[in-house]
Design a protein around this nucleic acid. Structure first.
Length: 427
RNA sequence: GGAGGGGUGGCCGAGAGGCUUAAGGCGGCGGUCUUGAAAACCGCUUCGGGACUUGUCCCGACGGGGGUUCGAAUCCCUCCCCCUCCGCCA
């Protein structure tokens, strides 16, 4: 959420940010107009309240009955005038809030201006695609031939976009998760958290999933709980409405969670394989830091995600997202794509975003620099490290061998219970 | 699931329609005293919003929301959360 104050003082900057994102800016004009009306109304309303409070106080100490009655009548009149103004004030307040919640973050000055994916800037490409002396297969073929991915039974259980991992496939998924968590906690200094996978509605507003992404969320009506679409949601809300004491920042968290997404917007896209499911695993990194540190923290976050790709010897590239492709909450972001030899595609396995104070303002995440100093909003950053299915797909495709088996990456071997090569027999 | 008890500032805790500007204490910060420290004493302690004369005034906030009333921390309704006992259960 943008600061109302900021929008009021810098309407042109906000307008430019919206335009660069390719977003309709109609709400901004209404917002600023209503804000003006709101403040005018508050002046009247608050002076009436002050008068009522003063008069009402005298009622209590009045000894003379007639005087007391006169004061009560006077207070009643003031209350009636207040009651007449309040509905409009409340209406404006709600509308202003709702308009504010609909506005995306303003892009960082370093974010390149562009309309969409095509204008993203490839910053670097690391590694080279592994050489194959045979035609590499896509992961869905590898998975089925090895008996480690069962698409049909996934559909039998839960419908399209669900699959079952089996034997060494399930084990490989678990190995990847465990290895990634160990890397982030032991080598990169993140604190692991294990959170609920269903959350209350207010958490989704705090993390800016609502109102915009309502259609993409699974919602349990009976208990009014929502399945998390990413660990970003519970972690953003860990410190909701807290003022962090001096010295606790920066906070670095990492969490494994499954992620649940309805993917209504992507109907018909990426239906082949495990690239886009309604349920997938993800290891997510998350940072809370002082405002002046977030630019540097974004670089570190990207570096920490790259370390996962390097550990697995995957070929990858880092792209800086342009304004048109930037996430709703982000002010600056980078994608990491890994090369998948079988399907011949770059697979997006991570988006690392600096959200500035956008989520912090929604979720009430503040800190104090020193004891007694004013509370300020933190900056928040999040990045996958990494999304599991696409990483798993890339591993299967890049580590496949002529005989149809798949070699286990060195870093995962300690987690595989002695399986160094996945063959049909392992399934 | 059944029965009961609760939710007040950073923390503890009083207040039970107007005399509250939320008592008192703890913790914290500043000061006096001291060679220094402790103790004692004095003062200050939250968040959001608004106004202008920019350092002062005002408004809102006692778990959230709604209501009763001239007036609500206080009474009513509702939701959330915590605790105790019982039942059931991974």
């Amino acid at each position: 959420m943008l600061s109302l104050q900021f929008a009021r003082d810098n309407p042109d900057a906000v307008r430019k940010g919206l335009r660069d994102r390719g977003v309709e800016e109609t709400g901004l004009g209404e917002l600023l107009r209503l804000d003006g009306e709101r403040r005018g109304l508050l002046v009247d309303l608050e002076s009436l309240r002050a008068e009522r409070n003063a008069t009402g106080k005298r009622v209590g100490s009045a000894t003379d009955a007639a005087e007391r009655q006169r004061l009560i009548d006077e207070t009643r009149v003031l209350s009636e005038r207040i009651d007449a103004l309040e509905p409009r004030a409340r209406e404006i307040e709600e509308r202003v809030r709702s308009l504010l919640l609909d506005l995306p973050n303003v892009p960082h000055p370093d974010t390149p201006v562009g309309e969409g994916e095509e204008q993203n800037v490839i910053i670097r490409t690391e590694g080279a695609p592994p050489p194959f002396d045979f035609e590499p297969r896509p992961h869905w073929e590898i998975g089925e031939r090895l008996g480690i991915i069962d698409f049909e039974r996934g559909v039998k259980l839960s419908g399209s976009r669900f699959y079952v991992l089996k034997g060494a496939g399930a084990r490989l998924e678990r190995a990847l998760i465990a290895w990634m968590l160990d890397l982030h906690t032991d080598k990169q200094g993140y604190t692991e958290v294990y959170t609920p996978f269903v959350v209350k509605e207010e958490c989704l507003w705090g993390a800016a999933q609502l109102p915009k992404f309502r259609d993409n969320l699974y919602h349990d009506v009976e208990d009014d709980l929502w399945l998390v679409p990413t660990a970003e949601v519970p972690i953003t809300n860990l410190h909701r409405d807290e003022i962090l004491e001096p010295g606790v920042l920066p906070l670095n968290y990492v969490a494994y969670t499954p992620c649940f997404r309805r993917e209504k917007m992507s109907a018909g896209r990426d239906v082949r394989g495990i690239k886009r499911g309604h349920q997938f695993d993800k290891v997510e990194m998350y940072k809370l830091c002082p405002p002046e540190a977030s630019d540097d923290e974004l670089e570190r976050l990207v570096g920490d995600a790259e370390a996962v790709c390097r550990g697995l010897s995957l070929t990858y590239r880092v792209k800086q997202l342009c304004t048109g492709d930037l996430g709703f909450s982000a002010t600056q972001a980078c994608d990491i794509d890994v090369w998948a030899s079988g399907c011949g595609e770059w697979l997006e396995v991570s988006t690392c975003s600096n959200c500035g104070d956008f989520q912090a303002r929604r979720a009430g995440l503040r800190f104090r620099r020193e004891r007694g100093s004013k509370a300020e909003y933190v900056h928040t950053l999040n990045g996958s490290g990494l999304g599991l299915p696409r990483t798993l797909a890339a591993v299967l495709e890049n580590y496949q061998q002529r005989d149809g088996s798949v070699a286990v990456p060195d870093v995962l071997k300690p987690y595989m219970g002695g399986i160094d090569v996945i063959r049909p027999a392992n399934a």
